[in-house]
Amino acid sequence: MTILFLFTIFILACFIGYFVVWGVTPALHSPLMSVSNAISGIVIVGALYVAAYSDNLAISEILSISAVFLASVNIFGGFAVSERMLAMFKKKDNKNA
């Protein structure tokens, strides 16, 4: 039952994604890529679970802590890059100066 429940959520989320992404203006496709890239770092939550239930110095601990680290680079780097890109798209007050 759980798997069907999760699968339902997955399919519905695909539909939401489909409609939301088509609404993104083509001018912002680069930021779309880097923002979506940053939020795909949500995999850190999975890494945290596995890390928290691993024994000390077990291989799974090393792997999951590394996963936390990598996802963290992905998240913070991704949002920072997006922030830089989007700041450039801010409407200029002194339009032609």
Binding site: L6, I9, F10, A13, C14, I16, G17, Y18, V20, V21, L32, M33, S36, N37, I39, S40, I42, V43, V45, G46
Partner: peptide
């Protein structure tokens, strides 16, 4: 994770 992954995948 499932929802976010699906949205990124769709994107």
């Amino acid at each position: 994770l499932i929802i976010t992954g699906a949205i990124v995948g769709a994107s």
